[in-house]
Amino acid sequence: MTDSLLTVDGLQVEYPGRGFRAQPFRAVKGVSFDIRPGETVGLVGESGSGKTTIGRAILGLAPVSAGTVTFKGEDISHPTKQRRRELTRDIQVVYQDPYSSLNPSLTIGDSLAEPMIVRKTPKREAQERVRELLDMVRLPADAADRMPREFSGGQRQRVAIARALALDPTLIICDEPVSALDLSTQARVLELFLEIQERTGVAYLFISHDLAVVREMSHRVAVLLHGELVEWGDGDTVTSQPEHPYTQRLLLASPVPDPVAQEQRRADRLRLKQLHADQDLQAGAA
């Protein structure tokens, strides 16, 4: 088995409670998984499940109260500000909103060159790299001289992907990177992610609430519920034959084009939800 690129072991993230004597809020509760080089791990769950918090903890932006995050054999659970900046060469992120992830006052070329210039890359070399990046994400070379407002949402997300690739990272955290896009644009951007992975060997932590998107992208899948890992395993198995009731509900929530089948899925999902609610009520009473 290939050694892991990233290992998350027993991760807990807590935030101070609101108000006097309030108990801390534990957003992530002992989560463990790993990512191998060149692999995509899908992290799926509904809003509030803790999936984005895990991504932030890996980036050093959320407080790790217990457990460890290990990258290339190094514990990065509590990086200094300097070490966190250094890690951006190897760990990058693509956010959900392509409109806010780019500086509106910089040209596309300047946005792409900025992380290289910060690291003292010669200007000519940075400009050549910008042209390579634009070609990699299928944007014309003259895009470098244009402003973000001149592009559609899908094109801006391509620019955001190019920026994440600028320093040749080995891991990219993709935090709901297609949820703000329409379905046809989503498909093209997902295809681009797959092509880039095949070309560069980069690994992805692909965070999404959509099990269908995660199934398309992921080699292995982790399912989160209220900050806990409830299912973890092979992507095809978890997304087609899930064992945990919560994952089964997520699967039934994914739309299908057949109206009759969709109606049946909706009924099955409601029945399953009610069954689990009754079980939880009985367990609480016991």
Rank of each mutant, 00 (worst) to 15 (best):
Q186P: 08
Q274N: 09
Q262G: 07
R84A: 15
L270C: 04
I91Y: 04
D3S: 14
F193Q: 10
V189Y: 06
L167E: 02
L190I: 14
V260L: 10
L270N: 06
T2A: 06
G42N: 05
Q279R: 13
F193S: 11
P255C: 12
Q282M: 14
Y204G: 01
S240M: 04
I35F: 03
D278H: 09
V64K: 02
P24H: 12
E125P: 00
Q186F: 10
Q264F: 01
L165Y: 04
Y95P: 04
G55Y: 06
G60E: 08
E243K: 11
R131H: 12
R188E: 15
K273E: 13
K51C: 07
F33T: 13
L225T: 00
R156K: 15
E114P: 02
E263F: 09
V202H: 03
T239C: 12
P98F: 05
L251H: 00
E191L: 12
L272M: 10
K120Q: 15
S49F: 08
T185F: 11
H276K: 14
P259C: 14
P115A: 06
V28A: 06
R18P: 03
T80F: 12
I161R: 13
T237D: 10
L6M: 09
G10L: 07
S184E: 07
R18W: 09
T40E: 05
A261G: 05
V41A: 03
Q92A: 04
S152I: 11
A203I: 10
E228A: 11
D182V: 09
G55C: 03
S152Y: 13
V44Q: 00
V64G: 01
S77M: 02
G109H: 06
T237L: 12
D175C: 06
A62N: 09
R18C: 02
V94W: 07
T2H: 01
A267I: 08
L167Q: 03
R36T: 05
S254I: 09
G48F: 03
S184I: 08
E86G: 07
P37T: 01
S77A: 02
S77C: 02
D280T: 03
I161F: 15
T7E: 15
M1D: 07
D182N: 07
D234W: 07
K120T: 13
R26Y: 10
R265V: 03
E216H: 14
P257M: 10
R89C: 11
P98T: 02
S47T: 15
Y204I: 01
A267W: 09
E86A: 13
D175P: 05
P255G: 08
I35K: 00
A160T: 09
V118S: 05
T88S: 09
L43S: 12
P169A: 05
Q279M: 14
P255H: 12
N103V: 01
S179K: 06
E74T: 13
T107S: 08
Q262D: 06
D135S: 15
A203S: 14
P104E: 01
E14S: 13
T185R: 06
T40R: 04
